[in-house]
Design a protein around this nucleic acid. Structure first.
Length: 485
RNA sequence: CGGGACGUGGCGCAGUCCGGUAGCGCACCUGAAUGGGGUUCAGGGGGUCGCCGGUUCGAAUCCGGCCGUCCCGACCA
């Protein structure tokens, strides 16, 4: 990495810290067009690990991958009224093709419902064709005013699931199934436990019956919507005439869902775990889980040390993702900084002193609970201990993040002054009673910049909820507030 | 689109007020010594100073216009 100055401290200017970090750690790159996305190999390697984990979970639950067109005829997008209203302001439109003005303008997909359903309609004839469980890995374009690396870019990579079901109950179950898959992925792979729930009526996906969301708390105590699943009811089926014949021979509209997570998760990962030294990656999503740094002076030492390093690398390969950094042109100290900055969970040093004692020195990227950062390990012990250490670090990160989330969650808040104080000082998730009126949220938003993130699912609900809304009215249900990206 | 700032090697900047033919740090290349927490020294390559026009013997610098970017608002995964 080798940079000229230290990162802006995370506590001082979180945004600057984040922007510098994604550049320095070679996740993102500069782009000639404002707000477009460049994912460098290091960032993409993380994305690939995310992809393969998610893809495995989708396939294990019967989903199949497919691919649909990038261009959506404008008339298609207009078929679902709420959908077009929601997305039209942020679409990019192609008006010329092959040098000629097009008869019909083409929308570059902001999401694919409007192109997928006209196509999949032909795939569905009978109840025997259902459920149809399709997923697409693709890029989409949403022309946002303000952009931020990974969190909000004009173009982003994502997966979008689109499913068709015979009954309302099945569609609802699908939306909840995927919600659960997302939650598990975020908890078990990203070590980022989100709060899960349903979006307010006016905040749901354009065209959806119901939108479920997963909200994660970043280190600056702002919330980030990390994923959503939608029960689309029969809205899109009716707009695109997607029907099937029942066992009884009648024609019925299908019930559909859609759901997605994007490269925004890369940003979430950085904002959840990293520090002033650089990236911190949970071992399961670290492209390199350990790097071996040989240390030597004389040629004789070099031969022995490199031989031992190479032997160790061969031993570890196949069990974990390991690299031997045998560059002769970079000093060991420089290597430490470089790999730490890139978030490699463990560094293994092998030098003359280690060889004497038949050991290697293992250094963990982050220390927690006073655990020592650096410790020697007998050479033949590494193969069995290192996977354990990786698991330990994975769960330590999860525990620390969960603890941070709970320490920054405020439940049972009913006093508006206290609410404002929390928002403007510490920030975090604020649980309150809520009257259910949109105007109430709008007023709080204008006042404090905090918004309703979601109505929490049972598992996240408070034991007791204030009887009064934060606006003073009668509370109908509980909501979670936060300032959000 | 409103308010503010800025455009100078790959990156970060100085120089602009007061015109004189472009400089610093990092990165890059070469060589030597180094090597258990960003090595050191020496040498080297790379820029029509955002664009167009004007003033001038002479413009990164002054004047006019245009373009672009970033930050603060409105919009959002």
């Amino acid at each position: 990495m080798a940079e000229d100055k230290a990162l802006t401290p995370r506590s001082e200017n979180f945004s600057a810290w984040y922007n510098e970090l994604v550049q320095r750690s070679e996740l993102a790159g500069h782009t000639p067009v404002r707000g477009c996305m460049v994912i460098r190999p290091h960032g993409y390697a993380i994305w690939e690990l995310m992809q393969s984990a998610l893809d495995g979970m989708f396939k294990a639950t019967g989903h199949q991958n497919a691919y649909f067109p990038l261009f959506i005829p404008e008339s298609y997008l207009k078929k679902e009224a709420e959908h077009v209203e929601g997305f039209a302001p942020e679409t990019a439109v192609v008006t010329i093709g092959g040098g000629k003005e097009l008869e019909e303008r083409l929308i570059i997909r902001p999401t694919s419902e409007a192109i997928i359903w006209p196509i999949m309609a032909d795939w569905i004839q009978s109840y025997r064709d259902l459920p149809l469980l399709i997923n697409q890995w693709a890029n989409v374009v949403r022309w946002e005013m303000r952009t931020r690396p990974f969190l909000r870019t004009l173009e982003f990579l994502w997966q979008e699931g689109h499913t068709a079901h015979a009954t309302a109950e099945e569609a609802e179950a699908e939306a909840l199934l995927i919600l659960d898959i997302y939650r598990k992925f975020m908890e078990e792979w990203m070590a980022m436990p989100p709060v899960v729930g349903v979006k307010a009526e006016w905040d749901k996906f354009a065209g959806a019956l119901r939108t479920y969301a997963l909200e994660a708390l970043m280190q600056d105590n702002w919330a980030l919507q990390a994923g959503t699943t939608h029960n689309l009811g029969q809205n899109f089926a009716k707009a695109f005439d997607v029907k099937y014949q029942t066992e009884a021979g009648e024609h019925e509209y299908i019930w559909s869902t859609s759901w997605g997570v994007s490269t925004r998760l890369l940003g979430a990962l950085v904002m959840t775990h990293s520090d002033d030294q650089g990236l911190i990656l949970p071992p399961k999503l670290a492209p390199l889980q350990a790097v071996i740094v040989p240390i030597y002076k004389s040629d004789g030492q070099k031969t022995n040390v490199l031989e031992a390093s190479d032997r160790l690398k061969s031993k570890l390969e196949g069990t974990l993702r390991v690299k031997l950094d045998d560059r002769d042109t970079v000093s060991p100290g420089a290597k430490y900084y470089e790999w730490e900055g890139k978030g490699v969970p463990f560094r293994i040093e092998i030098g003359p002193k280690d060889l004497e004692k038949q050991q290697v020195t293992v250094v963990r990227r982050v220390t927690m609970d006073g655990e020592q950062r650096k410790f020697p390990l007998a050479e033949n012990e590494v193969l069995t201990r290192l996977p354990e250490l990786l698991d330990q670090m994975q769960s330590d990160l999860y525990e620390a993040t969960l603890r941070r989330r709970e320490e920054n969650s405020y439940r049972g808040i009913s006093d508006y002054d206290e609410f404002k104080r929390i928002v403007s000082t510490t920030g975090g998730f604020i649980y309150t009673g809520y009257c259910g009126r949109e105007e109430c949220e709008t007023r709080v938003k204008d006042d404090t910049k905090a918004t309703i993130r979601l109505i929490p699912d049972e598992a996240f609900r408070s034991e007791s909820v204030p009887a009064t809304c934060i606006c003073g009215g009668k509370a109908q249900y509980e909501v979670v507030w936060a300032r959000a990206y």
